[in-house]
Write a protein that binds this DNA or RNA. Structure first.
Lengths: 167, 167
DNA sequence: TTGGAAAGTCAACAAGACTGACATAAAATA
DNA sequence: TATTTTATGTCAGTCTTGTTGACTTTCCAA
């Protein structure tokens, strides 16, 4: 049988009960809705979607990244990403430069226009996060980050920390 | 200008810098992927999607809930939810009983089969959450929950806590 | 009793994910 | 050098899940 969180010896493991886990699951669901709500609203004005936001975010985050790299980060198919990148390049938000060393690669950069959209989106998203962080306090934020990292697949955790170290 | 988290007087507000906020944002993105990964894999075997999971979850959570109630929780259009409910009813996972008091209403219940699927899905999701909770520890979990609640729209927070109190 | 509001259903459409097949160019390797 | 692998892009088609609009049934209140 699975561990259901009953206190074993001296430790209080009540935070591992199915009921507590379910509350956390539902909190994740509702919080993610809030998390994406502000950018989603902004994107409607541009006829872009969440997929465009994600691409723009990570290109801004790692300028010069290749398409393949972005595929790993976003976890979608190249056809799906390509549709998004094509519109972003056509609309002049993203520039795709052919690689010097390896001419098969495309290195992706935001244009001035792309940076402007990225700023608008991330500013709105940061605003909500800042309010939440401030309300919860630094210790809560540390716990928040710890649990999120533990929820991720190991590969994603590694990717996140690689990016974080670099940036 | 926006608060960018510089320490003002004695308090250390470094956890509110744009950089820290961005890390939290990316952690949310990657964690949510992990959060949905296990149920998504299971759902493939049944030709259902995330929308079905959500419906089944909340019907299990609040048996007898009406369609309108579920709409508020899920935040989609009734047409979108209806498509999902129709397949679940057709497949015998959900029973929709016409209301006694108000015959316009449908009260939703999981059948035995529905409960079985719900258990399979939530068990997989809880397993990941339990591992994450255990790895991070009770204090981190408390912070996690606090920040998630602060990220939500107030309406959602209220809804979540109403459900939590009742359940 | 009648007209509007509410609950739910049906139809059609769009975004964004997917798979599969294929093309091109460049790099790596046998 | 010849062949294979890699990186990227494209076309076509499908699926899930969101959307709007139009409709029926039921309830309630003026």
């Amino acid at each position: 049988m699975q561990d259901r969180g009953q206190a074993t010896s001296s430790e209080n493991l009540l935070f591992l009960t199915d009921d507590q886990l379910r509350k956390g699951i539902e909190a994740m669901f509702f919080a993610y809705r809030g998390f994406t709500a502000d950018p989603d609203r902004i994107l409607e004005n541009y006829a872009y979607g969440r997929a465009h936001h994600r691409a723009v975010h990570f290109i801004n985050r790692a300028p010069g990244t290749t398409v393949n790299n972005l595929l790993d980060i976003l976890g979608v198919t190249k056809q799906s990403l390509n549709r998004v990148l094509r519109t972003l390049v056509e609309d002049g938000l993203v520039e795709a430069r052919i690689g010097n060393r390896d001419k098969r690669e495309r290195h992706l950069f935001l244009t001035e226009k792309g940076r402007a959209l990225e700023q608008e989106l991330s500013k709105a998203q940061r605003k909500r996060m800042r309010a939440a962080y401030r309300a919860a306090g630094p210790d809560a934020v540390q716990g928040f980050r710890q649990v999120l990292e533990a929820i991720m697949d190991p590969g994603m955790r590694k990717l996140l920390n690689t990016m974080t170290d670099a940036g």
